[in-house]
Write a protein that binds this DNA or RNA. Structure first.
Lengths: 374, 374
DNA sequence: TTGTAGGCGTTATCAA
DNA sequence: TTGATAACGCCTACAA
């Protein structure tokens, strides 16, 4: 009954339970439990007997049962619009790293920016009794139904990237206003006068902030704001493409795009039209990626600290789970302007004293470290 | 005791259980359970009473308890080397879509290609009693310890992207041999004679297959295989950079790179050296991304069906979970050569009859649909 | 220091 | 059609 690896059944039908271990070691379940959880007050002899039994039976604690008993799953739910949007993987990675560090796991959901899907996901996560939720809110509004769910359940939520007016909740976001301001300022300093904006959906907090930064930077530089030069997209490639066509018919000489995917769409549009960057228009985009500095046009971008975004959000969430009851905080992470060539800054200098080649060789040296293998 | 939303406690300390509902509706828990699970044999009156009680108490079934009782969590674990590697998000998305469709959730882990982390993750997932695991195996070997764990636990595993010799397990992979073969053939047809390879770690199945495809395509085209022109990397940017320098000292006129990240590294190296693509060397790379056709050099790539990879793997896994006991299958998904400009194919034609401009305007029209907003 | 018994929220078995 | 009641595997007062 105990010689072969799995008793006498061919299939290891049931994995050993704490009772099996207790029986094997001739102790009570209490002792086994104490050993498993590293309590100190267990006699050496018993401890050894238990450990022997554990490894003999190949015992593995059932965390589901533990969760039920302790009312804690050590799992956190994370809802993002779409993990395939290159912006999110690093955010998720940051969250996973932090979670991992504290013994938590990540249950990942995609909302596709749909309120219905999002609500279904939250509902499911709550039913699965996750200890907390990391949420990049979908869509444009915060339905009362969701709001109420969040209010009523006891578990903490931390908003990621997007906040909502009149919602006093923990959130970790980026300094979008400042990022956009810097971007547009740079464009202006590069000599661009008719600066256009391809914006995200203005009902989303970060899109609004980026728009405000755009507006204020224009004002600061004494440039006119023309609504014809502002086109609203939805952060996807296709919308950047359409917005590009709409915008370019008004002949901007500088464009600030509120995220990377729309920049890709814009470039498809400019290619169709036959416009070159930065010769025909300056471009600054949001979101930076390690591969952007080996491709042309060399995009000048505003980098958002994606990994940190995820990890800080997770850390905060875990603190809340641990019982931190201090008032809600909104943590705003700094952005960083990464100047390359697409803004035409170098170009603008060359125009004043034309000396060197048009497209300067980039003397950047060591490659960034990045992600791991396929 | 029942008028205000949450009884009389300020904190909704305990969410309602099935017992509370039963009491509220004056029925037994059995009846409540039956209603929740949509059983038919419940009288209309009772059913209505139960439903009323459920919505009144804001009852939400505890899936942890259900999992414990049913020995099924409806959760599947997914282990990838690194979600921040742009290859994986779409694979994960595919898996999540399929999982979602069947009522499963995804518990995501990153192994960083470390055997230790991987084993820890598997261990944890097993303890959390996931119903199955989707595994992109880390590192280069399959330790006996892991092998044994997989063998002994009852739950199904499906390997993703990488298989292992002498391991008869379900797997969903891509036709790497064919993809590499096509890539190199194309390079040869474009007139390249000294074709180099930047390979993944040859102990990983897909890297080996890609190497074999490379070798055989050279042979088929009557080109010599020179080990000086084969450099092994680890699928990361940095290794592509180093491999690039090593390779370029031998002056290849064509290079096939086994994944995108290493291509990025290679391009950093060529930039340092001052080599241009495709003028100075032809390039074909693995992995395609929607943004690759708006940047220069326009990479000719071998696209791998990432989403399908994930969804098919998940579907297979779920079939196994449902009890499918048929023999293990290895599903090999077709790849697709996407010809752009980096191979210098157009260039090679131009060389024969020099007529049009060097860098042809790309007449591609509608942009691909892609990921969703930030 | 160790053991016993009850509870966590469901499902499932067997009577009624 | 319903209702008690026993699993499910673990934790944890409370007792010994």
């Amino acid at each position: 009954m105990s010689s072969s690896k799995n008793g006498n059944r061919t299939k290891p039908s049931k994995s050993a339970s704490i009772y099996d271990v207790a029986r094997e070691a001739s102790v009570s379940v209490f002792t086994v439990s104490a050993v498993i959880n590293g309590k100190e007050h267990v006699g050496k002899k018993l401890r050894e007997r238990v450990e022997a039994a554990i490894s003999k039976l190949n015992y593995r604690p059932n965390l589901i049962a533990r969760s039920l008993a302790k009312q804690r799953t050590h799992t956190i739910g994370m809802i993002v619009p779409d993990i395939a949007n290159p912006f999110f993987p690093m955010v998720v990675r940051g969250a996973e790293d932090a979670a991992q560090k504290h013994g938590y796991n990540l249950l990942l959901c995609n909302s596709d920016d749909s309120l219905a899907k999002e609500e279904a996901s939250v509902e499911l996560l709550l039913s699965k009794r996750v200890d907390g939720i990391l949420l990049t809110k979908a869509g444009e509004d915060f339905r009362p139904s969701l709001r109420q769910m969040i209010e009523e359940v006891g578990i903490p939520f931390v908003l990621v990237m997007r906040t909502y007016p009149r919602l006093t909740k923990d959130a970790v976001i980026t300094d979008d206003y400042r990022g956009a301001y810097d971007a547009v300022l740079h464009l202006a300093r590069a000599g661009r006068r008719r600066i256009g904006l391809i914006s995200g959906p203005l009902k989303v907090s970060n899109a609004l902030a980026r728009w405000e930064g755009f507006r204020d930077a224009l004002k600061a530089e004494g440039l006119p704001y023309s609504s014809a030069l502002v086109v609203e997209g939805d952060y996807r490639i296709e919308s950047g493409f359409r917005a590009g066509h709409a915008l370019l018919s008004h002949h901007p000489d500088g464009i600030y795009v509120a995220n990377h995917l729309m920049t890709v769409g814009l470039l498809k549009a400019t290619e169709e039209i036959g416009l070159r960057c930065p010769e025909d228009f300056g471009l600054v985009s949001f979101d930076d990626y390690p591969w952007l500095d080996v491709f042309y046009p060399r995009l000048t971008t505003v980098e958002l600290p994606k990994h940190q975004l995820g990890s800080e959000a997770a850390e905060l969430l875990i603190r809340r789970i641990a019982g931190d009851r201090s008032p809600p905080v909104v943590k705003k992470l700094p952005t960083e302007l990464r100047i390359r060539d697409s803004c035409g800054f170098a170009l603008s200098i060359l125009r004043r004293r034309p000396k060197k080649e048009t497209r300067p060789r980039n003397p950047r040296s060591a490659p960034n470290e990045s992600s791991k293998g396929v």
